[in-house]
Design a protein around this nucleic acid. Sequence first.
DNA 1: AACGAAGTGATCGTATACAAAAATTCCCTT
DNA 2: AAGGGAATTTTTGTATACGATCACTTCGTT
Lengths: 231, 231
Amino acid sequence: MATDTSSTGAPDRVSRIRNGLLLAILEHRLLPGTKLGEDEIGQIYDASRTLVRAALQQLAHEGIVEIEKNRGAFVASPSPREARETFEARCLIEGAIVERAVKARSETWRVRLDDQLAAEADAEARGDHRAAIRLSGEYHLLVAEMADHELYYSLLRELVARTSLTILLYRRHRVHFCGVDHHRLITDAIVSGDAVRAKALMIDHLKEIEAELDLTETEESSASLADILQG
Amino acid sequence: MATDTSSTGAPDRVSRIRNGLLLAILEHRLLPGTKLGEDEIGQIYDASRTLVRAALQQLAHEGIVEIEKNRGAFVASPSPREARETFEARCLIEGAIVERAVKARSETWRVRLDDQLAAEADAEARGDHRAAIRLSGEYHLLVAEMADHELYYSLLRELVARTSLTILLYRRHRVHFCGVDHHRLITDAIVSGDAVRAKALMIDHLKEIEAELDLTETEESSASLADILQG
DNA sequence: AACGAAGTGATCGTATACAAAAATTCCCTT
DNA sequence: AAGGGAATTTTTGTATACGATCACTTCGTT
């Protein structure tokens, strides 16, 4: 069955819209704060607003899109606090995931991990930042797939997407290589069956990414106007 | 804040429908597998199918409702596998939550926890099972609120709801008291600042609930027909 | 009488229409 | 010329209409 409608993904039209938007956001072609007008998207995908709204509401539930009443949908801009919470949750969940992944290791998985690493290295070598960003996230999802835990997998998928937005908003230096090197080390630990090392490397990897960000509060919320005017 | 619409929830009409359905499911007035017809719900809440669909899709994303294409929405029936995954995720997340809750302990929180326990004990004493079920879940959410981690809170809210369905489907004995006693022990550990004990008690509490269930596979999925006919 | 097929009714998927709110433009006033 | 306000335009919120799919009933055939 080429047109896979099995597990979760359906080839229905709202999923097509959702996936199209998600990919654009994950590849940083749509930046945080971008307005996502219903009519505009509807014209692009040749669909009515009904379907577009369904797709946007899904993405909103995943935290990738923010919907403001009577104002419309925008690509989400995670606050520093949300960013920290996302990283904390990723450490927790990916720690558990990697332990399960180690137990599931096999030759088949080793090959899939190697292929993934090769694709990542290739994208970085070619300087294709957009592909590199996406593939970096996909590595984490591949490990989650190994863990054979659908709930963890779907949770991580949301967290990875939010991480992508977070990095774009708060990174200190211009480019950020999520590090194929790190991924390779983690892979080695997994395939060699060293669970505690794999877990430690994974968490360090995540904490390092977070450390490269500037997550100081900016007090963008209310009352700032008064402060500014009186300052 | 009795009718809590603060953080994310808006007092809009789709939220009213969603919350109404959710409450009915959490109190086991709507049982797993129940058909949730769009027109039927629309008449009850005096709303058009547009709004009902939005509410149902939200609940579907939370795993409380299952939507089958061209067949409609039903109260979810978590599989044994989904049930196990839910409990594993709860152990992981509530372990982290309770550690954070211990750090946040204060006189104010002690009072809120006490009130919650009193309400639970009262419901059990009155034999009001429906309220008891709901309040038992609310205790866990109160601890999550202490943890001051919006992401963990929203994740746990979904997990608690699915747990409610799971218990209904798979419990061995007729009634299941989620145990005010357990909750009281956990509360004591939290307010006394004993993080490791609180965490251990919380995880034991969850594992004990899971142990009271019969989560053996029933092979309800595909290919069973062939097996039955050939058997 | 049992099985199967066509027809009928109910329910869902999607588009569109209309109302309400927000954003923008334009004009008037100072 | 700058600021404010009303009219206009755009966009979202919600209801409804219509076609498609599924479930059920009924009728005919073996």
